[in-house]
Computed example of a mutant assay.
Amino acid sequence: MNAIARRVSATIFAPASQGANSLGRDPSQIQQWRGIRVKVRNGNLERALALMQRKMQSSGIERLIKQEQTHHIKNSEKRVLARKNLERKIRSQELARKLQTILIKKVRGL
């Protein structure tokens, strides 16, 4: 966990004064490059950590961290992830098919 934390802190909490393009990053990642800042008010560290966790979840940094992990994934976890991805793909295809039929009906109705 320490190696991951060091890698994340090096990439997330790097100084904002350096330009995003000078590091080979595209401008859409400037928000992530600047990092997340949370103020600790009245010495309440627990609340600040909870707020930081919420901000990380909403900004997508948590997903990026999980993608970077290079640990072994069990076969059962792989199967679960593959099934979820397949269900998501099928659901989106069904939705696209439904929308297409609705649009065709509207165009023909005119």
Rank of each mutant, 00 (worst) to 15 (best):
M1I: 10
M1G: 12
N2L: 15
N2S: 15
A3H: 07
I4V: 13
I4E: 00
A5S: 09
V8R: 02
T11E: 02
F13E: 06
F13L: 13
P15R: 14
P15C: 13
A16N: 07
A16E: 08
Q18I: 12
Q18F: 06
Q18E: 09
A20H: 06
S22P: 01
L23G: 03
L23A: 10
R25W: 04
D26W: 09
P27E: 13
P27C: 12
Q29W: 04
Q31S: 11
Q31K: 06
W33C: 09
W33P: 01
R34E: 04
R37L: 14
V38W: 00
K39H: 14
R41E: 15
R41T: 15
R41K: 15
N42L: 14
G43P: 00
G43R: 02
G43Y: 02
N44R: 03
L45S: 08
L45C: 09
L45N: 09
E46Y: 05
R47C: 08
L49K: 08
L49P: 01
L49N: 07
L49Q: 10
A50M: 11
A50Y: 06
L51N: 03
M52W: 00
M52D: 01
M52K: 01
Q53E: 15
R54P: 02
K55G: 00
M56D: 00
Q57K: 11
S59Y: 02
S59Q: 02
I61Q: 02
E62N: 05
E62Q: 06
E62L: 06
R63Q: 14
R63I: 15
L64C: 08
L64H: 04
I65G: 00
I65R: 00
K66C: 12
K66S: 12
E68K: 15
E68C: 11
E68D: 13
E68L: 13
Q69R: 11
H71P: 03
H71A: 13
H71V: 14
K74A: 12
K74V: 11
E77H: 03
E77L: 04
K78M: 11
K78Q: 07
K78C: 06
R79G: 02
V80E: 05
A82S: 08
A82G: 04
A82Q: 05
K84S: 10
K84N: 11
N85Y: 06
L86A: 10
L86R: 13
E87R: 07
R88W: 07
K89T: 07
K89F: 06
R91V: 14
R91W: 12
Q93M: 11
Q93A: 05
E94I: 04
L95G: 04
K98H: 10
K98E: 05
L99G: 04
T101F: 05
L103C: 10
K105W: 03
K106W: 15
K106Y: 15
L110T: 14
L110I: 15
